[in-house]
Simulated scan of single mutants.
Amino acid sequence: MPKKVLFALTSHGTLGDTGRSTGFYVPEVAHPAAVFRAAGYEIAYVSVRGGEPPRDGYNAEDQVQADFLADPDTVAALSRTAAPGELSADDYDVVFYAGGHGAMWDLPGATELAALAAGVYERGGVVAAVCHGPAGLVNIRLGDGSYLVEGKQVSTFTNEEEQAVGLTEVVPFLLESRLAERGAKITKTGNFAEHAVADQRLVTGQNPASALRVAELVVEQLEAPLEAPAA
Rank of each mutant, 00 (worst) to 15 (best):
L226Y: 00
G183P: 11
A110H: 09
R49T: 15
D93K: 08
G100K: 05
N139E: 15
E220K: 06
D67P: 01
A76G: 03
Q63A: 15
Y25P: 00
S88C: 10
M104Q: 09
E42F: 00
E161C: 07
K185H: 10
E181G: 15
H195K: 13
S47D: 01
A184S: 11
T10D: 11
W105N: 09
T158P: 07
E169M: 13
A70E: 13
V165F: 13
V149I: 03
I43T: 08
A198S: 12
E42W: 02
E86V: 06
S11P: 07
P84M: 02
P225M: 02
G133W: 11
E61S: 13
E122L: 11
G57R: 07
T189R: 14
A228Y: 04
L78V: 05
F68H: 12
A228T: 15
E160V: 15
A135R: 02
Y25G: 12
V197C: 04
D56K: 07
L202D: 04
F96T: 00
N59G: 07
T18M: 10
L15A: 06
Y25H: 10
V138W: 03
Y45N: 03
R49G: 13
D67Q: 13
A115W: 06
F192W: 15
G143F: 01
G136Y: 00
G125Y: 01
L217R: 04
E176S: 03
P2T: 14
V64Q: 09
R141E: 10
A38K: 11
E161Q: 14
E42Q: 05
E161L: 11
A70H: 01
I43Y: 06
G183D: 03
Y121V: 03
G99A: 07
F173C: 08
N191V: 14
V29F: 14
R141I: 14
I186S: 14
C131T: 00
S11Y: 05
G143H: 00
A209P: 03
A114Q: 13
P134S: 02
H31R: 15
T14N: 04
Q63D: 14
A70Q: 12
R55P: 01
G99L: 02
P27Q: 05
G151D: 04
V35P: 02
P225R: 03
A34C: 04
A70C: 14
P53W: 01
G50N: 07
E220S: 07
A39I: 03
E150D: 14
D71C: 08
G109C: 06
E181N: 13
E220V: 02
S177W: 06
A30C: 05
F7L: 11
G109S: 09
V165N: 05
G102P: 14
Y97T: 09
L69I: 15
F68G: 12
L217G: 08
A231N: 10
S146K: 07
E86G: 01
P54E: 08
L9F: 00
E194S: 12
W105M: 10
L212M: 09
F192N: 01
